[in-house]
């Protein structure tokens, strides 16, 4: 197996508070291969965005990486000096944020923001940077890019602004793009377009994508593999078809059951009873055990580790413990 572009190993993110340390991410491990689109799903507060922020080195204090390693193409990046990490941001890892209305500085033209980004990372003249900026805008589908480049952000609609944001994130040709809910703030009608633009342009450049979203539809259409987060822990990770059609972790099963489909004719969607635990009240053992329909005694005591399953999947659930299966059989 070739070396992955990004490798996250046992990542732990903690928030020290007055009442003790909150563990927001607990031993999260996953890889993103070259050119791959990894979907990252989970409920609000599961730690999706935190994972992205930790990778790009922009955790908001007092949040901090308390354990684990992050490797980018064989280079460890979670403990880099601030200045070195800054050079990776934008140049090797780009990021697209959720709200295009607030992601752009209102006081600078699109041209100024683009050329500034390009010239921060690539040694080109102002003129060359502008040429590249126009080409980028054109590529992300801004009509009359050479004219509109000198407009201010408020002259663009929401969908157009998100295209500008994508252009900015890709300005220095990063190898990995972290897209944190890139379509959540947009009209449904433009969501698909934005996802298409993002996917196409990344495919063209061979950039990998980590797509953070809670929209399973987007994941199904776009991602190669999907990782499911629950209460700061990875529940399941695997190829997107397999996970959607034959989820193994009971949480993923519940998650998929709660998505309406056209082929189903159920009166009610299934829902998972209860709510995700707060970070200061994560139960011992498996974090999902109080809500799980197939809970066993062991789940309340021991925490299941992420274990390999056939077909390149990994699940953290005692149901699939090989020793257990062997004992049962």
């Amino acid at each position: 197996m070739p070396e992955p572009l990004l490798s996250v190993r046992d990542l732990v993110v903690e928030f020290p508070t007055r009442r003790g340390v909150l563990r927001a991410l607990d031993k999260v491990s996953f890889d993103i291969a070259e050119g791959e689109v990894l979907g990252m799903v989970g409920e609000s507060g599961a730690g999706k965005s935190l994972t992205g922020a930790a990778i790009i080195g922009l955790l908001e204090p007092p949040g901090r990486i308390a354990g684990g390693e992050i490797w980018l193409r064989g280079e460890r990046i979670d403990n880099l000096a601030r200045e070195k990490m800054r050079r990776i941001r934008g140049r090797r890892i780009g990021m697209v944020f959720q709200d295009p209305l607030t992601s752009l500085n209102p006081l600078y033209t699109v041209a100024e923001q683009l050329t500034e980004t390009i010239r921060t990372h690539i040694d080109v003249s102002e003129k060359e940077a502008r040429k590249r900026a126009i080409a980028l805008l054109d590529r992300v589908g801004i009509p009359a890019a050479s004219r509109r480049i000198d407009d201010y952000p408020h002259h663009f609609s929401g969908g157009m602004r998100q295209r500008v944001v994508i252009a900015l994130a890709l300005a220095a040709e990063p190898e990995l793009v972290i897209a944190d809910e890139p379509t959540t703030a947009l009209d449904v009608s433009v969501q698909a377009q934005i996802i298409d633009v993002l996917k196409e342009i990344c495919a063209e450049r061979g950039a990998s994508v980590m797509l953070i979203t809670h929209d399973m539809g987007v994941i199904a259409e776009t991602a190669d593999r999907v990782a499911v987060l629950y209460a700061g822990r990875l529940a399941e990770i695997g190829p997107v078809r397999d996970v959607i059609q034959a989820a193994e972790h009971p949480y993923t099963v519940g998650l998929m059951g709660s998505i309406p489909t056209l082929t189903q004719t159920a009166d009610r969607l299934t829902q998972i009873p209860g709510a995700m635990p707060r970070l200061n009240a994560i139960p011992t053992g498996c974090a999902f055990n109080p809500r799980c329909t197939r809970v066993m005694d062991r789940c309340r005591i021991d925490r299941p580790e992420l274990a390999a399953r056939p077909g390149g999947r990994q699940v953290s659930c005692w149901l699939y413990d090989t020793a257990m299966e062997a004992a049962d059989g």
Partner: peptide, 28 residues
């Protein structure tokens, strides 16, 4: 604000973020 976070995510130097992007908005 988000645009400062985004400016950082684009790898702009601290000086550019603080004085180019933040201060100008502060001055309004």
């Amino acid at each position: 604000t988000d645009y400062i976070k985004f400016a950082r995510a684009r790898g702009l130097s601290n000086r550019a973020v603080h004085f180019g992007h933040a201060l100008k908005n502060t001055l309004v």
